[in-house]
Design a protein around this nucleic acid. Structure first.
Lengths: 158, 158
DNA sequence: CGGCTGGGTTCGACGTGCGAACTCAGCTAG
DNA sequence: CTAGCTGAGTTCGCACGTCGAACCCAGCCG
């Protein structure tokens, strides 16, 4: 059986992209990692239109990436803020991997705008491919093989 | 200086997404990692329209993600195939991170369709956050700080 | 009570992705 | 030499999604 026969839509990459690949989703998450939580802060910071942001936030709450949480400053009306849920926080490696790729290949300016470090030891954090034997793996040194959940394009079962 | 003041567009994540966030780009790369190279194979496998695929491949070659390479089967006309360039191959961690997230949060079926393993030792490969001290880092244990290339939204030089 | 502000929703215009149909070059069969 | 096939696009009209701007609404404040 050949990897080329894999039904494209059963792939986790494709399923992930249906959610994460929508415009603004990863950027909203990035804002959330930066600590922005309020609608107008996110809207202003990203420069996204309000209508699209409202729709995207709804979807992201629906998907479980963010949680809506009522919030109240003294003397102010109650507001909603959007905080990272676990499912959203687990996308952090994707964001780090994207940032690294951009830092490496789209550079041309004065350096890395944001630096991530390990809360435990203070050392900077990178996304790496690692194998279970503990080696750091280069992208060229990966072999892909069919796994248990593989499905042929042209066969319903088997 | 607060991370919230970062100009959104200087972020490598945003710059990466301008390229990688376009529809089909990551899926075309996934196909490339699987070994698909020919236009019609990719088109048929992904189910993308020819017009969009042609445009996307042009852009990806333009961006340096893929390389066009003439190819000829005996008794056949010369064709073009699209092979991964280094810049495209370096996106593999992004794809692995997306796949892992999908495997974890969008599961609900019979397992992982594709298994990646280290060509050196045969152990399976994952994308992990690691710090320079060599620790594997949890997404919750990351602190973000301004780096050297940071730019305020409201100040040209600062 | 009347205005202000945060947090949306609604609306029309534009842009872009989409599938289907068309084009075109080179190979092959007759 | 011609007719037909195939792979690889290109063109076309439609539909959906994003956009900015305008509108709305609830609560607080003077």
């Amino acid at each position: 059986m050949d990897l080329r026969d894999l039904d494209s839509s059963t792939c986790s990459v494709a399923r992930s992209l249906e959610i994460v690949g929508r415009p603004w989703v990863l950027l909203v998450l990035r804002e959330a990692f930066y600590g922005l939580r309020r609608f107008s802060d996110i809207q202003e910071h990203l420069g996204v239109s309000r209508s699209v942001l409202a729709a995207r936030l709804d979807e992201m709450v629906e998907e479980g990436l963010l949680e809506r949480r009522p919030y109240r400053e003294p003397g102010r009306r109650e507001r909603t803020e959007y905080v990272l849920a676990d499912k959203g926080r687990d996308l952090y490696p994707v964001i780090v991997a994207l940032r690294q790729w951009g830092d490496r290949h789209l550079a041309g300016d004065d350096g890395v705008p944001v630096h991530a470090e390990h809360a435990g030891c203070g050392a900077s954090v990178r996304a790496e491919l690692v194998c279970e034997a503990g080696h750091v793996v280069d992208s060229g040194d990966v072999e892909r093989r069919p796994g248990p959940g593989m499905r042929r394009r042209d066969a319903v079962a088997g």
